[in-house]
Design a protein around this nucleic acid. Structure first.
Lengths: 198, 198
DNA sequence: ATTTTGTACTAACAATCATTAAATTTTGGT
DNA sequence: ACCAAAATTTAATGATTGTTAGTACAAAAT
């Protein structure tokens, strides 16, 4: 009888959630079936339900794990006594790092949250709106201090967030530059693009 | 009996393809059912098949329409006698304009191409690879000419393309700045970010 | 060694999916 | 007014979906 192999100190549910992340990234939430997932885990589809409540539970577990990490980091950065531009750089580096090291989950959260169902959906949309406003607030502070050029803050947020999600292409690419270089390059373009002209 | 209302000079198929774009954007290709589409068109599901061959035909029609427009513009820009930085700016402005004025189709092409089936899938992946290389070539030329700062070209391409796709958020946003301002802001950040430090 | 608990299996469920065939209705040309 | 072509409908198809019930096995606890 097949048995789900756990990592040490990890539950069987953890294994399933992790495999789900990979599968949801590859095929999308809707296109990934529970039978696909079962095969990836090495077990029959029905067996999954000893560990999870539903397919949708897998999605909102993934999404909120990621979201919480970002909110936590934002709390930290906001309270630091550094310039707005430095805050933006720190935040950017964190987003890049998350995208590199927790690729599957972050990618899935970003692309598949639409398939959440209420109350998780509206909850997530709220969190997202608030998070973006907090970024915008940092930028606007930087504009007031003449560190950052006078541009529409929500537009910067949008460029910022989506540019980072482009790391997806880097992951898929065959001849990658290394992660530190990638981070360096992204910071160079985006933070320089923000700086007020002296 | 319900009948599909066409725009003047447009076929019934055009109506279906257009509604499909909207629906695929809203729910994703897999989650959008032919019954959903039929309802949007104002007709029974089976009726759609008098005008189209299959659901997947809708997707690859959308995807390749968009792809062709981009390739065509790239041909045009490549052959112009202007600097690399100017080429990048023109290309950026075109991408922004496409994203603003053909939102549904461009968005769907970008996010749902994974669900194409061969031979369309590999065909599309090829086109995409080539297109990105052409952008990278422009950037590398700019680096050689010291117009553009010395950074990894593929990384620039990735930032560039994904930043533009962020316009999705702009579309959804309630208090939008106007389109010209948006374009201005994006160009300001991204092109300035590219410029070599003097 | 026996009981208990957790894990997996087989088999089946109703719902939904894209798609087809056949019958019916509408339209446009004569 | 009639006829052929085009458009839509109803009804059904087989495939796949997420999920459950019931049962068998294995590991842990007693």
């Amino acid at each position: 009888m097949a048995r789900i192999k756990t990592e040490k100190n990890g539950s069987r549910k953890d294994v399933i959630v992790s495999k789900a992340a990979t599968l949801f990234r590859e095929k999308g939430y809707k296109a990934a079936s529970m039978r696909d997932l079962a095969e990836a885990v090495g077990v029959e589809a029905a067996s999954l339900y000893n560990h999870i409540k539903s397919k949708s539970e897998l999605l909102h577990e993934l999404v909120f794990n990621v979201a919480n990490r970002f909110v936590l980091k934002m709390d930290e950065i906001e309270s630091e006594p550094i310039s707005s531009l430095q805050k933006m750089e720190k935040l950017l580096r964190f987003h890049i790092s998350e995208m590199i090291h927790h690729y599957e989950e972050v990618y899935v959260s970003d692309r598949e949250w639409k398939h959440l169902s209420d109350p998780y959906l509206s909850n997530y949309q709220n969190q997202r709106r608030v998070y973006r406003k907090r970024i915008a607030a940092i930028i606007e502070e930087g504009i007031r201090n003449k560190e950052i050029k006078a541009i529409d803050a929500p537009t910067v947020v949008l460029i910022f967030l989506h540019a980072v999600s482009g790391i997806e292409s880097w992951h898929r690419s065959t001849k990658k530059i290394n992660a530190t270089e990638l981070e360096q390059n992204m910071v160079a373009i985006l933070i320089d693009g923000l700086k007020a002209n002296k």
